[in-house]
């Protein structure tokens, strides 16, 4: 029983950190209806930048993170400005391929420029575990889960403000948004910038968990499964889906891995995408296509 609880609690915390990665995807999808397949690369680049600013340039912890968030915000903004804006009106598949191409480029270019070996994320989190009764909890996960909850809550508040409502309006209907005077391009660029900054913060957390190297970009798969299950445009959906994916992944791999020699963790995410698309294509809280008769 303790073993199950331990798996579930750690899994839930990891799930919240997945939700944070996925929230970057949701943010861009909510404003422009584009699924950003480069989000994994963004997180990896964010982690690399934090490492580079702190370990190479000698910035302090907080300035380093802020500088990385600003740089990633600029990268997100540039991505929209230079690449996606030219794609307005193009078929969805072309836009998807563009963002996926960016993911591949980031995966190759960032480790190529800053070193491919795994680096420790230079933030002072004690490796000593936290005991909750008999249950062992990873300290980094607790911090990660807490940061994830705060960030997602901040985003949720943002979507209730006027700028946030305008952003949601843009995602509903570009032309109508334009017609009522919402600067659509600027709104979409803003969502990309915020999504980039969120990726940097996410990169810090995940870099602290598994070290900084190219494999951080594989979070894309986890984030996609969480975002798809949550419904792509719903923040509360993403949190719930993150918890579900995290707990299942942790519990299933905890019990099954000893028999199959590991690797079930990766399978869970894939199965989640698969089942969601088959059974509930718009996810848990995703907006259904409204068909009025």
């Amino acid at each position: 029983m303790t073993f199950l609880a331990e798996l579930a609690i750690n899994g839930a915390l990891v799930g919240l950190m997945y939700a944070l990665v996925a929230s970057g995807i949701v943010l861009v999808y909510k404003s422009s209806g584009v699924v950003n397949l480069a989000q994994g690369g963004f997180v990896m680049a964010g982690a690399y930048l934090v490492w580079a600013y702190i370990a190479r340039l000698g910035l302090g912890l907080i300035p380093g993170i802020l500088a990385a968030a600003a740089s990633m915000g600029a990268l997100g903004w540039l991505t929209e400005r230079l690449a996606l804006r030219r794609m307005i009106g193009q078929p969805v598949i072309m836009i998807l391929m563009l963002t996926f191409g960016l993911e591949v480029v980031l995966r190759g270019a960032v480790p190529g420029a800053l070193g491919a070996d795994t680096k420790p994320m230079p933030i002072p989190i004690s490796q000593a575990p936290v005991w909750l009764g008999d249950i062992l909890i990873n300290r980094t996960y607790i911090l990660g889960g807490a940061v994830a909850v705060v960030m997602v809550a901040l985003l949720a508040v943002f979507f209730r403000t006027r700028a946030g409502i305008a952003m949601r309006a843009v995602s509903d209907d570009h032309l109508a948004a334009w017609a009522v005077g919402i600067p659509v391009e600027r709104t979409v660029a803003l969502s990309w910038a915020v999504s980039g900054a969120v990726a940097a913060v996410t990169g810090v957390l995940w870099g602290a968990v598994q070290g900084v190297d190219w494999s951080l970009s594989l979070l894309l798969i986890k984030a996609l499964s969480v975002a798809v299950l949550g419904g792509l445009d719903s923040l509360s959906g993403v949190v719930l889906a993150g918890l579900i994916v995290g707990v299942f992944e942790s519990v299933i791999s905890g019990y099954v891995d000893p028999f199959v020699g590991g690797g079930t963790r990766e399978v869970v995410a894939a199965v989640v995408i698969f089942l969601t698309v088959l059974i509930r294509p718009y996810g848990l809280f995703g907006r259904e296509v409204i068909e009025r008769v």
């Binding site: 409502i165 949601r168 309006a169 509903d172 209907d173 032309l175 109508a176 948004a177 017609a179 907006r287 409204i290």
Partner: peptide, 10 residues
């Protein structure tokens, strides 16, 4: 706009 085009999910 023609066809109303309200923001359906708002």
């Amino acid at each position: 706009l023609e066809g109303r085009r309200v923001f359906e999910h708002l």
